[in-house]
Nucleic acid binder design. Sequence first.
DNA 1: CTGAAAGCGCTTACAG
DNA 2: CTGAAAGCGCTTACAG
Lengths: 377, 377
Amino acid sequence: MLAGLEYDKRKRSELLGNAVDSSKTPSSDPEDSELGVEGGRKRATINDIARLAGVSKKTVSRVINQSPFVRDETRERIEAVIAEWGYAPDPQARGLAFRRSFLIGMVYDNPNPQYVVNMQLGLLDGLRGSGFELVVHPCNRASPTFLNDIRAFVERQKLFGVVLPPSVSEDESVARLLSEIGCAYIRIASVELDKPEHMIVGRDRLGGEVMGRHLVDLGHTRIGFVTGLPNFRSSHERLGGFEDALRKAGLALDPDYVAQGAYTFESGVAAGEALLARTPRPTAIFCANDEMAAGALQAARRAGLNVPEDVTIVGFDDFQIAQSVWPPLTTIHIPTREVGRLAAEKLIGKETRDARDPAPTAPYLVLRESSAPPPKS
Amino acid sequence: MLAGLEYDKRKRSELLGNAVDSSKTPSSDPEDSELGVEGGRKRATINDIARLAGVSKKTVSRVINQSPFVRDETRERIEAVIAEWGYAPDPQARGLAFRRSFLIGMVYDNPNPQYVVNMQLGLLDGLRGSGFELVVHPCNRASPTFLNDIRAFVERQKLFGVVLPPSVSEDESVARLLSEIGCAYIRIASVELDKPEHMIVGRDRLGGEVMGRHLVDLGHTRIGFVTGLPNFRSSHERLGGFEDALRKAGLALDPDYVAQGAYTFESGVAAGEALLARTPRPTAIFCANDEMAAGALQAARRAGLNVPEDVTIVGFDDFQIAQSVWPPLTTIHIPTREVGRLAAEKLIGKETRDARDPAPTAPYLVLRESSAPPPKS
DNA sequence: CTGAAAGCGCTTACAG
DNA sequence: CTGAAAGCGCTTACAG
């Protein structure tokens, strides 16, 4: 079952002890003798702190858990001992007693590495100093064991909670499962799919509108749109925001100028080729993410078109690729990392102390070289 | 200390019980009454399995830990009960008794999202079915608390082991620290920095040589090289392999045609500009990763040069960006995910059963459109 | 080959 | 405001 942990390999030779500081002086208690086969001094436990502070372990426990029912004087004495010995409670023991671990799961199926890494960094930002750790768990909605896998993961690890980025976040059966087994969760999505306490809502629609306005302001009227995967709400929201901008400018979206993409580079090439073949040709193409915009850029090149002189091509996300292609892409910046931080803070209840229900900062336009006014033909 | 876990919020209302199957029939034992406030039936424990199989919990423990000292008949009976009830031991309780958790840490500082995500996927591949989980832990070698952070992380979580990708893997003080505190570790690097049992050695040097041979075979003799960050061994190994290829072809590396990069797109632009300004101009530029090759591509375009007609530009890694730029980059494919799997398997001792000390598959050339014979001038 | 007792380091439930 | 007892679900150390 667990490799490397076979019974006969587990002969332990460490000696027990309570000492924890770095001096080599053995205490007078014979149990304290410390050789530390593995070179380390034993960490202090709640019992050590209790003894040293002259209180019961229960009282130390109260201090750890910020119980109000401790006299200030007692608390200060205990906190001093804790600080002096660098004591930190053992999350495993605490978890066992709490019947809940101090692990946060990130259950995701997003295919974009940059999104995944930024989201992780954001979650870690939110968890920093809290004592929680982040366990990553990719999943596959198409797998027949999809829900069972998640259930086994959550139950076995007794996860404190999980964060769900798109598109798993948009799967109702996952949210239902988590509710059933009593696991806290936060869904990250571009629309309010659940009760507010379970949601961090991204502002994809606004981002789509900002980009739409940019294109309209440049003078474009015949604009193509490349959608993302249909099972990502963000794709619909970005398109919806774009339509909002068109509508406000008195323009309408021509369905013939909407091409289906899949958020991948290759799908951007194909959709770009298709749109550039329309007659009349669009003067601008708005792709629902940068990856597809990079693909559309390539389609334009193959068609012998210069960007932005002949056609404007813009993306969404502001990931690295937007800067690495030529010309660099005008795009919409999305605060992925910040969204992650907010999700983690909300999950562990940190946000209640700071601000109530903070929304991520608004997406904004990043102007680069791939957008320009339409060619005067 | 731990947000959301204040003393007075922890009033628990669940009832205890031992039932675990899905039938609602309460057992005759009054303690078994089960309402499951959180909707869930209680999971079976080792005590339930022991009772059901008519043995002591110690014997169940032996089965779980694959002790040879269990009669076959007893073992089978217990395994049947385990399977019937879907029992899985609680990793927290097990960890507490073992004085070691079932968590594997990935401690990394690699800046490339694609590398990080692929490495994570590989580690997860190796951990699958083992009961171990992956905890991610980015770090910063420049931080004054760098080592203390790692120590606190490893000790607090009682990590079973950690995997170190470059460049943390190349930090001797980290390896020393891990040895001292008795934490198992695997270093992933392009040279054997440590005892074999602590190493997965990538074949960057071979990759560099393969690419060098490709360029030589195309007829290039005046080749520029853009290095990666100097504190990444891979950078030196890739250059070393390139030199090997040159030497074997009777060519020598001209130091004037080596430019310092930093593995980033921007550094590729700068190094590309510098090299393209040399007289005579190199007919090919080998960048130590794809990101910099994308940058060099941009430098070439700005200099009014066509790739590959005027100058060949090639990369290393075969990440997505190699396919997303124009022209798509000839590059060297590195089995990042496989390396991750091997590292995880080695760490948890899985590899001893499969193959002894497997090496990652060799890097190979991926031929795309950015390389061609030198221009006939 | 198997088991009863003690313990891992915490918290809960209950007294005072 | 504080503490002694019991328990979380496992394993170790020791008997038999």
